[in-house]
């Protein structure tokens, strides 16, 4: 025991070496997330992705809506926007269009992005707005006390579904695919290496990119349904996940504690909204049109 304590003391001096600390606003840590909440693990993976991407961090901005996941923007040491509920994507769109050289990332919850914010998601994907959307899906409204969400599977109890949920949930990768996203993948927080790699890959791509991250909410989802703590949910992810890259997104809907299909489902090229606009008006007006957000005649 004393030996391990010595190591802890040794760790005080070197603790600043933790590779993720420079990516965080350390004055805000410890964060508010509950013990065993998976949001922090996803943020940890995102920090590794930022680090591995080699991107100039002054040109990366992060936008969140409201919710436990929505707190992410406030913890990352990037230019960040903590917006109103459901409106992270419109803010991100404005940010991207006013300063096209920014790499804009939306980081928010399933309720924020697909309940109140659903319409924004569909249209940004349809237009191929050049942003990366990371959705932490914990199947519930964590911050407000565990109400049923558009992602809650049929079966589990929620505060607004005391006898279990009977509503059909969204299949998020299928929605993103159908709306035209250029990159769609799903991982769980068990798959830390794959998730960090997917985030890095998506940061380097253009167009509307979507990553779904399955993550436990022990406080309001797992415990309420007697599924144990956060770690028990992550063990379930480990047991029941199958990697199926390139599979039809129609096939990846999630049932209650059932099989989880993970992997990269979509990776395609499509002109972004800005590219389409520039091409369209250049075609109509020729040299009289000054393409927007383009440097030295090329993007």
């Amino acid at each position: 025991m004393s030996e391990s304590l010595d190591l802890h003391l040794a760790s005080v001096e070197t603790s600043l070496d933790n590779p993720v600390l420079p990516f965080l606003r350390q004055d805000r840590i410890p964060h508010i997330w509950c013990p065993g909440c998976g949001i922090g693990t996803s943020v940890n993976c995102f920090c590794r992705a930022l680090s591995d991407s080699g991107l100039d961090l002054d040109k990366v901005a992060i936008v969140s809506g409201i919710g436990c996941t929505g707190r992410t923007a406030g913890y990352l040491n990037l230019d960040s926007f903590h917006t109103t509920h459901g409106r992270a994507i419109p803010f991100a769109t404005g940010l991207k269009l006013s300063n096209p050289e920014l790499n804009v990332v939306v980081y928010s919850g399933d309720g924020d992005l697909f309940a109140i914010g659903g319409n924004h998601f569909f249209h940004a994907a349809r237009r191929n707005m050049d942003i990366l959307v990371i959705c932490v899906n914990n199947f519930t409204y964590g911050m407000t006390g565990g109400q049923v969400a558009p992602t809650t599977p049929v079966g589990p109890t929620q505060t607004t579904m005391p006898y279990g949920n009977f509503e059909n949930p969204f299949n998020l990768p299928f929605i993103a695919d159908a709306c035209g996203a250029t990159y769609v993948s799903r991982w769980t927080i068990y798959h830390v290496r794959q998730l960090a790699k997917a985030m890095k890959e998506a940061l380097g791509k253009k167009g509307f990119r979507f990553i779904e991250v399955m993550s436990p909410c022990p406080t309001l989802y797992s415990r309420r349904n007697r599924l144990g703590d956060g770690v028990d949910q992550v063990k379930y992810y480990k047991e029941k996940s199958v990697i199926k890259n390139g599979v039809d997104t129609k096939e990846v809907g999630l049932g209650y504690q059932g099989e989880i299909v993970v992997g990269k489902f979509v990776d395609r090229e499509r002109p972004t909204w800005l590219e389409s606009m520039n091409a369209h008006y250049s075609h109509h007006f020729g040299d009289a049109f000054q393409p927007y957000g383009v440097k030295n005649g090329q993007d």
């Binding site: 993720v20 065993g36 693990t41 943020v43 590794r48």
Partner: peptide, 10 residues
């Protein structure tokens, strides 16, 4: 280090 949600270990 990658799993820790609280950035407490590496």
């Amino acid at each position: 280090g990658l799993y820790c949600p609280d950035f407490a270990i590496f």
